[in-house]
Structures are given as structure tokens and as C-alpha cells.
Design a protein around this nucleic acid. Sequence first.
DNA 1: GTCGATTACGTATTACGTAACAATT
DNA 2: AATTGTTACGTAATACGTAATCGAC
Lengths: 280, 280
Amino acid sequence: MMFELQQLQQLIAIAESGTLSAAAERLHLSQPALSRSMQKLEEHFGAPLFSRTKNRMTLNETGVVAVQQARCVIEATESFDAAVRQKIKSLTLRIIGSCAPGPLWDLVPDISILASGMTIAYEILDDEALLEARLRDGTYPLVLLSHPMEGDDIVCKPYIEEQLFVSFPAGHQLASRKHLWAKDLDGLTMLLFTNLGIWSHFHNKMTKTHFILQTDRQAFSDLVTASVLPNFVTNLSRDHQNPQLHRVVVPLMDKEAKKTFYLCARKSNQQLFARIKPRI
Amino acid sequence: MMFELQQLQQLIAIAESGTLSAAAERLHLSQPALSRSMQKLEEHFGAPLFSRTKNRMTLNETGVVAVQQARCVIEATESFDAAVRQKIKSLTLRIIGSCAPGPLWDLVPDISILASGMTIAYEILDDEALLEARLRDGTYPLVLLSHPMEGDDIVCKPYIEEQLFVSFPAGHQLASRKHLWAKDLDGLTMLLFTNLGIWSHFHNKMTKTHFILQTDRQAFSDLVTASVLPNFVTNLSRDHQNPQLHRVVVPLMDKEAKKTFYLCARKSNQQLFARIKPRI
DNA sequence: GTCGATTACGTATTACGTAACAATT
DNA sequence: AATTGTTACGTAATACGTAATCGAC
């Protein structure tokens, strides 16, 4: 097979648009590119698919057949794509954690073992009311909340605790402290990883601390080791990220710096729920 | 659609070969290339199609579905290809001329007009017995022979005459001759276009003349104008090729240098045959 | 040590867009 | 003049093969 799916789509686009120019625009392609592409397709068959006058290109009899058949091929590729995506979806178990990533770092591997072969998909949201709704409407079989969830058809248990620490480079002025409060960080510049779920609420209150946000995990990690800026770690993150060499870790004493996460499920989905062992 | 047919074929090849290496060899591709190609396919779906250990790659559940579906797509592309080729074939009228190209230069345009929209395909052979057989077995509706054809179910008429000339550059020693015999060309070096059908028999007898053979029409044409070498032309070729400027044309008097070509058809195909007007 | 797969890297192909052109309306 | 398609050309994307690496058998 020496032709490409693209070419078939282009052929169809030309048939539907009437002219090569219009099709090119529709395909976000230049006219010359499309012209050459069709020439190649014709070359493949060794026969023209269009009848050409100097400034007009119309499908000839062969071209009409080609368009018909090309539609079948595109249809086949679309059902291929759909079938594979469907399969992937069917092999994907959707959970949701409010305070990701922390609790998920333990929960996802646990579930991976319980549901072997499945891919675990998760979403991190800071709106816990929305999470409760998502559990109830069946979008997710499991949610992790920072508080117990009420409801007749709901089961819920404490799963894990997370405690915030601040990580300082060895020589930092606060590195010798045994404990800290959030207000001690006023005026500091810190590195902060994004997508922290409800932890964001905590950081948002620290209006006097300047945060350098970083969305990319690897870039964040590189920055931490390369810079002398303090950053946050937790009892959970320390297990899962690189051990912080040449760094001192000091606990935060604010009551919002320690959270218990509750694993919640609908009773109808209790069998999976029951098999997940709390880490608390 | 962001994947290629190639990738689907490769996926199938891997499934059939068992390993990536074996498939790579079968596809005349290096292992790394195939590896990357599959990584791209997985990237497209955002999910793995293989389960990988360090030195083993096996289709996972998603991959198995993908292979199944990919087979359907390939099947569809093959019927696309077949349908288009079939259509092209159905729009192609096959004729055959023994002494091409000469007589065909007139015959092909004539038939193009009679069978408007059709592509005319022809073949040039120097074996006239074979041509007769091809007419009888239906491979070709029409043949051009250098002699009349016999047979109850055969119709036949003289179509055209072709006379060989030699074309010399203006200053050539033989350019002033009113006529020539083949033996006068002994010792000369001449340009000769290939695929001349039965004319080859004539040239083959001229063992003392050295021929520079040229298969490409354009290259031959360029050589003729650029060199001072003599070449053959005919009453038919002079009409269809560029007029030979600064050249003198001298007729060949040998009886093999003049041929009458006969158009032959089966009686069952007489209606087309009848509409073709002889050029004689 | 061989085999199978991935990563890294330099190169060669190719595919694209811009520009220039030809021809039609 | 505006539209439509083709050709020419320089560049950017990419796809490939070789070589190196890492593990498994």
C-alpha cells in the first residue's frame, strides 16, 4: 500500500468542496501541497482521478469511484479508532482524589494490584462538593475527600493522613527550626507545584509568601535540586519523590497543614471498597 | 486521523511474527524504526498496545483488539485499491500494434475520439504469431500486423503504410543522396530508439552499423538535436515528433523498409473495427 | 554470548509554504 | 482583476539506519 489516509481524506474534501482551493482551506493546507498530494495519488494508480483544464479540476469517472470507496476506508479507520479507544476505556478504572497527588500515590498502586491489568485514571479537583456529586452520579466509583461523607447509600472510611513540611536547603536560616507556622514563611520565595487540589486553599491564604509555580513535574524536580529555594513536601511525597539530599525538613504546625483523607464509595460498589486497606 | 496505514500493517506484522525484530525483518525495516513507529501509535491513543518487559514486547488486551480492527482497515484499503484499479481497467481499451509506435500514433487518437473518455492502452511486440493468438483469445480487441490475418471469425483491412528514412545532419556526407540502401550505412554510428517492434528485425540485420540505443523518449529527442549522428525517421514519425530542423531526410529503398500494416479484429467486435478509417 | 528492545544521534528524504506563473472568467 | 491550478525552490519536519545501552535467556 503506497498511499496515505490523509490523501483519501483530501480526496473526499475536494469532492465535497468542489474545488481544490476550497478543500485546501478546509484542510488548513496550501493549494500547492494539496495539488501535489493528489498528483501522488494519481501516480500510485497510474491513471488520472481528475479531468483537468488549465484552471479547473473535476473528478473524472475513476475519481468518483475513488471517492466512494475512500469514504468506506475512512469509515473503517474511524471504527478502528473508536474500537480501540472503547477498549482502552473499558480497561480504565476512574477514581478521583480531592487532595491529590498525595493519597493517590498509595491508592493508585493498591488498586492497580486489586484490578490487575487495568489502567487507573484519576482526577484532582479542589471542589469537594463536586466530588461528592460525581460519586453519587456514578461518574466515579471512588472518591477521596478531606472529610467523611454522609449518606444512606454511601460507605466511607479514613484512608490516609498527610502532613505538610517545608523543605529547606541545608544552610537556610529557618533550617534549624524544629517546627514552623505558615506565617513564619511570610516574605519568602518558594517553589510550588501546581494541581494540588485542596492544598491550594492553604497556599492561597499565604498571601505574603511569593510562590514560583511550576506545572511540569520534571522541571519542578530539577528546580528543587538546582535552586536554594524552599518548597513543600509531605509525609507522602517524601516516599514517592526523590529523597531530598542536602535538605532539611521542618513540620508545619497549623491545623490546616494536617489532613485526614476519607475514601468513599457507593454501597453498590462496596466489594472493591472493602478490599482497599487504609494506610492510617 | 493521526496515524498511518503503514503503522497498522506494522502492527499486524508484529502480531503475526511474534516479535518486533522478526516483524522488522519481514517489513525490511530496522528494529528501532519499527519500535518508534509503534510508540507513535500508542501515543496517538494515549495508552499502551503492548506490555513491555525489558527485552520482550507482547500485545496487551488493547493491542489484540487493535490488531483485529486494523485487519478490517487494511481490508478496506485493499478493496479501495482494487475498486479503483478495476474502474481504471474498465475505462481502458486495450489494443496492440506489432509495428509500434508508428501506426499507433494515428490509431490511438482515432480510437480515443471514437471511445471518448476511455484510456487507450497498447503494447508493442515483435512476435506477430503471439499477437494473432492474443487477438483470438480475446486479450486484445484489435491488433496491427504487418501482414493480413486469416481466419473465419477475423476481419482485417490495410490501415497504414510506413516508410523508413534516414535523417542526417545537414553537412553529413550521405545527406546529398537521393536514396539509400541499408548496406550504405555500414560502418556508421546511429542513434536508435528502442521498442520498435518488428522494425527491430530490420535493424538487427544491419550488423555492420553501430547503434546507440536509447530507451527514454525525451533523452533520445535531446540526443538527436544535440548530436551529429544520423537516426531513423518514418513518414509517420515525422508527423508526430518535432520537425527535424537542419536535417536532411533520405528514403531507404530496401523492400523491408516499407511496410503495410493491417488492422485486424474478431468479427464479434466488428462495430468498432468498422468505424476506424484506414489511413491508406 | 546472543537476542530483543529502547535510546541517542547524524543524515537523507519528504512535505510544506512562499513565490512566481499560466490561464480562465 | 480575481480565481484556480501547477511549477519551482528553499526550508523545516520526520523517518530512517547505525551505533550504543540495557536486560533477559
